[in-house]
Nucleic acid binder design. Structure first.
Lengths: 127, 127
DNA sequence: TTAATATTAGTAACTATTACTGATTTCGGA
DNA sequence: TCCGAAATCAGTAATAGTTACTAATATTAA
């Protein structure tokens, strides 16, 4: 994979924040440094970086995909009202991949644990 | 919620199969019984049924959403190559929702555990 | 410096899903 | 049984999110 300024800038952006931006949010943010970058470039590089394991792609089922530059093992909470993605520090005790692999024909490479409910703010606002 | 032939037919279809069809697959299948049903009706009723808790909506991040008429607690494997969704009988020992709720401001209503990797068939075909 | 190749910006196209509209169906009450 | 309000429908248009295409540019190894 050849170096590109745009890809580096996208990765830097994701690694320097702890929210979970959508492609569009990354685009808006990166545009402040690379004003001519195109949305397609952002999408393409987010895919490349996620395939590479340098970032995480989070598909919530609510609106667009989100991305995460923090790749240490952790899980996510997704608010069914507003769609916000929040880091959860809880991690299961068991070796989930190992246990699930028993009696399974195929290779399990990873898992994703997502929690759903209402976030603090939506509770307060009675959404 | 008022009764409708179309909704009953969609629910019956999902409950009588153990794969994880997309909206389009449900549409094709239900059309054999209700030839004039429209795709929009299928989408609308799948949403209603999922909001009701009568079926599950599975967002895999690979292509369209899938749906599941089997709502007893279970988890899913998703093949990164072909996108197929497969039931996993493995269920974590811990009370995951309870544990994750500690130190979390907000209400966790449910969780979804998805496994990713390569399915038996894609391994065989070297995909 | 050159040449091969990856990457880009800009735009068009595509896929999945939702919204709209006027006609039809459901269903509780007369 | 019939009526009327409200939900639902089929058909279609519109939208959101994402991917594909193309000619120009950037990167990199020789």
């Amino acid at each position: 994979m050849k170096y590109s300024r745009q890809r580096e800038c996208i990765l830097n952006n994701l690694q320097s924040r702890r929210d979970h931006p959508t492609a569009d949010m990354v685009y808006e943010s990166v545009r402040e440094i690379q004003p001519n970058i195109s949305l397609g470039t952002v999408y393409r590089n987010l895919s490349l970086l996620a395939d590479n394991g340098q970032i995480l792609k989070i598909s919530t089922g609510i609106g667009p995909d989100h991305f995460d530059g923090f790749i240490e093992p952790h899980n996510h909470f997704i608010c069914k009202e507003c769609g916000i993605v929040i880091d959860m520090d809880f991690i299961p005790n068991e070796n989930i991949v190992k246990k699930a692999s028993e009696n399974f024909e195929g290779i399990i490479e990873s898992y994703e644990l997502q929690f759903f409910g209402k976030c603090k703010d939506c509770l307060k606002n009675n959404n």
